[in-house]
């Protein structure tokens, strides 16, 4: 029975492999680690380790998954490491030009906040990223109009 099941499993995975081919991107344990992080925010370091490993393996095999640098960067930002975050956001944009608008928007906001912070120190707010507030305000008012 066990043998049969194993055979069946092998057959299934062989068929699936033949059909979908090897996964294009290396996600590592992104999925369970993200879920664990949602359930328990104190699992942030587990999520971080999962991201780091997925990046490492992805870089090695040339199968780096989209969003991994950015997710890690955002995690670093939430831990107060702004320089590390900006670095990773830039890496994401470099690896995946599709993310350029989003990443450069976030980086611009962050670096502007930083330079403003130097001039008027009192005004600096922790590490909040404000992505194009106008655009989001636009979405809100559009909802009001639509409904």
């Amino acid at each position: 029975m066990i043998k049969k099941n194993i055979l069946l499993l092998c057959a299934t995975s062989a068929v699936l492999a033949g059909c979908v081919a090897a996964p294009r991107f290396e996600y590592g344990s992104y999925e369970p680690a993200l879920y664990a992080y949602y359930k328990k925010p104190e699992m942030a370091d587990k999520f971080e380790a999962a991201l780091q490993k997925a990046i490492e393996k992805g870089e090695e095999t040339d199968r780096l998954a989209p969003g991994m640098y950015a997710e890690l960067g955002y995690l670093k930002l939430s831990q107060g490491d702004q320089a590390g975050a900006v670095d990773l956001f830039r890496k994401e944009a470099q690896a995946f030009p599709e993310s350029e608008v989003f990443m450069s928007g976030v980086v611009t906001r962050l670096t502007r906040q930083e330079s403003e912070g130097v001039i008027e120190e009192e005004e600096t707010e922790s590490n909040d990223v404000k992505v194009s507030e106008n655009a989001i305000d636009g979405m809100r008012s559009a909802e009001g109009a639509d409904v």
């Binding site: 979908v20 996964p23 294009r24 991107f25 996600y27 992104y30 999925e31 369970p32 993200l34 879920y35 992080y37 949602y38 998954a65 989209p66 969003g67 991994m68 950015a70 997710e71 960067g73 955002y74 994401e92 995946f96 599709e98 993310s99 989003f102």
Partner: peptide, 21 residues
């Protein structure tokens, strides 16, 4: 749902934005 949706769509050959961020 959210933690498992990015990967299968990316594996189809697309850039998928960082869902959690």
């Amino acid at each position: 749902f959210l933690s498992t949706v990015s990967q299968p769509f990316a594996q189809r050959g697309y850039y998928v934005f960082p869902a959690n961020m």
